[in-house]
Write a protein that binds this DNA or RNA. Structure first.
Lengths: 205, 205
DNA sequence: GTCTATAAGAAGATAGAC
DNA sequence: GTCTATCTTCTTATAGAC
């Protein structure tokens, strides 16, 4: 990793812990292993570092979204994989999603940074809602739509069913972001949530 | 309202919009209608204002919690009010809870302030989780426990049922805090959520 | 690209008159 | 209790040598 990338990396770490205003250019420089003035050879000013983080994370999320869309569309053609969607498989999927979002450094730090900065600018509020409200509901809603078609889930309101699946997961994610020591407790609750979800919405044949 | 109270009030408003670090003592003073140095006759320093907000809000929440506990216990003795808990009544209760938390100035501003500051100190993380995770789950879990006993709701896991009711409400609350223009959309979704919740968990006799 | 030195300005807080 | 004036410290950012 070159210096310019390392600056973004360390800045993200600090912003996610203290928020933009409480991080000083000198703090970032120290972590990178340079002095504050050297940092201005890489970025015009402190705000430019923040903006570069947003741009870089947007790039990554778009890349990821594209990959998921392809997966989703491929899966749609093969309804068989949904027909065989047992409770165990739903559990595995839920846990993987949860643990990935929780433990992936970029995801966790960026989410925490946006949590702190979401009220500061309209753009950031929209970014937060896109990433943690609308995109997940839309993507998971699509998958659940397939499952309803395939007959493994049953509902007359896919949107609310998706909300019932995702909102508790989001809720537990925010608890772990705030209090990482509660992760074991939340993992247990996550399993109980998915099992109950499957019993409520599954065909249970 | 005297000056000392007005300082707390204006500080809370500013902290909830910009976060502690982005609010300057002069900003608070200006809103109160005095100059910055005068403010130091009322509070030792900026941090003392923040601490006083926390203390004052804790006092209010404890007061409120005490009142709710009394209501809850009284209600427990009168199981009849749960037996007659129709879908319409559940809807009304859900909406009232949601709109109160969303529109009550102290609630909304304090929640936003804690959202911004939750990662800054362990105490604040615990405060946030107490107010918006554990206390609501515990209180609503108690009410739902009564309803299960009364036979209007049916489940073998009250904890997860409570999570299924509360997490979507919390989720929609955070959306409205971030993007108040989405309130109508969220109110519609709230109704759909509660109706579906009632159909999933209600006895539907 | 990194450093030291330093300018420029902001923000918290105090002193002391009224 | 409020004000003006001021101090001190911190922070961003630039200048210019290496």
């Amino acid at each position: 990793m070159n210096t310019k990338e390392k600056i973004l990396d360390e800045a993200l770490t600090l912003f996610s812990e203290k928020g933009y205003a409480n991080v000083f250019v000198g703090d970032i420089a120290e972590r990178v292993g340079i002095k504050a003035p050297s940092l201005y050879k890489h970025y015009k000013n402190k705000q430019a570092i923040f903006d570069a983080i947003i741009d870089e994370m947007n790039r990554r999320f778009e890349e990821q979204a594209k990959a998921m869309q392809i997966n989703g569309n491929d899966a749609a053609k093969d309804a068989g994989i949904y027909k065989s969607m047992s409770e165990d498989r739903l559990l595995k999927l839920g846990r993987e999603f949860f643990l990935y979002y929780l433990h992936d450094d970029y995801n966790r730090k960026f989410r925490k940074m946006l949590t702190i900065e979401q009220f500061h600018e309209k753009d950031l509020a929209e970014e937060y809602s896109k990433l943690y409200v609308d995109d997940p509901l839309s993507y998971q809603g699509m998958l659940f739509g397939f499952m309803v078609t395939a007959g493994v889930l049953k509902t007359d309101n896919v949107q609310v069913m998706t909300l019932h699946f995702y909102a508790p997961i989001y809720f537990m994610l925010t608890v772990c972001d705030r209090q990482p020591e509660r992760e074991p407790e939340m993992l247990k609750l996550l399993d109980a949530h998915i099992i109950q979800f499957d019993r409520l919405y599954g065909r249970n044949e």
